[in-house]
């Protein structure tokens, strides 16, 4: 846990068992459903089967078929239905089996859910959970990081937690939101991260970035699975007396520009690391934000590290070449520090 999380958790008793990132999401769903009967889950194979990744495991037995709904295979259909239920006062949590499949429900998200409040003022309390990200040898259709598409759409909130603590707390916040939230959970992290979480319910607010590691020479900005590579690179560089600050974006929309810019004003140098591909992506937005708001504090070019503009390849050597690796991040930081 980070410093801020420890503070947030101060006074909270911790569970005796460690929870994975996946367990954390399950806990948030369970809590939200216990607290509010308007919350229900809909998606493919989420009920009896417990979800393709078992995120909803046990919820069907506890809450029944009415609240954990196995839908036919129709992303547009069930996302649209969730919007209708939300407009009628329920609080649906949709599971899209893989974030890659979210494009099958594209119109319901960007033209229906996102554009209601601006016109009518009606709240749309809807959460769409989407397991995203590469690194699992899953190829072009089960590895994408499409968060940029949605971050570009006004009316949606877009979040991408990097730790079990954040995954649980931010999903709770997302379910309490009155706006549509696209919740990108990085599936590479599902079972790789573990930590002891608070026993009692808590929320991590949306729209707040977090300084995960303090440093003075270079700021690295990242989120999701790439954040962990950025931290690893930062720790390695400490041995070379390069002091790296790492900022976790956590929420893409609304973006906490103040925290990002504040860190870069301190260090004067910035590296942005994203899993979304290079051009016209999240990294471009973060870079532009820094150059506009911190130009007179910059002591070097802003560096973007992101995968190339290609589909995500399947074969291990290709996928490894595609994804930014710790050595790539380390080299970029080192070069910028020397500049």
């Amino acid at each position: 846990m980070s410093i801020t999380e420890q503070k947030a958790a101060a006074g909270m008793e911790l569970q005796s068992q460690e929870s994975t990132y996946l367990d954390a999401i399950n806990q948030a769903l369970r809590e939200a459903m216990e607290e509010d009967s308007r919350v229900f889950i809909i998606g493919e194979d989420v009920g009896v089967y417990g979800g393709a990744f078992k995120v909803t495991k046990g919820l069907f037995d506890k809450f029944g078929a009415k609240r954990v709904i196995d839908s036919p295979l129709c992303e547009s259909g069930f996302i649209g239905a969730a919007v209708g239920a939300a407009l009628m006062g329920l609080r649906p949590v949709v599971e899209v089996q893989y974030a890659d499949f979210i494009s099958c429900g594209w119109d319901q998200i960007v033209n229906v859910a996102a554009k209601i409040h601006y016109r009518t003022g009606d709240p749309v309390p809807l959460v769409i959970r989407a397991p995203s990200g590469a690194g699992l040898r899953a190829g072009p259709f089960h590895s994408q990081s499409p968060e940029g598409w949605f971050a570009h759409t006004p009316g949606l909130k877009v979040v991408a937690p990097a730790t079990p603590f954040d995954a649980r707390g931010m999903l709770k916040s997302a379910i309490l939101e009155e706006n549509p939230v696209i919740f990108f959970e990085h599936k590479y992290l599902y079972r790789r991260l573990k930590e002891r979480l608070p026993k009692e319910a808590y929320e991590v607010p949306l729209g707040k970035a977090l300084v995960r590691r303090e440093g003075n020479d270079v700021t690295v900005i990242s989120y999701g699975a790439m954040l962990h590579k950025a931290i690893e690179a930062a720790e390695g560089l400490a041995e070379k007396s390069i002091s790296v600050e790492v900022v976790d974006v956590r929420t893409l929309t609304p973006l906490d520009r103040e925290t990002l810019v504040g860190s870069v004003k301190k260090t004067g140098k910035a590296v942005v690391v994203c899993e979304d591909n290079f051009s016209y992506g999240v990294a471009a937005e973060l870079t532009a934000t820094i150059s506009e708001a911190a130009f007179e504090y910059l002591d070097g070019p802003i560096v973007r590290i992101a995968p190339p503009d290609t589909p995500i390849p399947f074969s291990p050597p290709l996928e490894d070449a595609y994804l930014p690796q710790v050595v790539d991040i380390t080299a970029a930081i080192e070069k910028l520090a020397r500049y």
Binding site: I3, Q6, K7, A10, M12, E13, L14, E214, N216, G268
Partner: peptide, 25 residues
């Protein structure tokens, strides 16, 4: 940037480490 600050002969101020103040449950 460090060169300019150093030329001013101002001691570089290191930020104090942020303590993780944790209250016992």
């Amino acid at each position: 940037k460090k060169d300019v600050l150093g030329y001013q002969a101002e001691p570089a101020v290191q930020p104090a480490p942020v303590a993780a103040e944790q209250k016992p449950a």
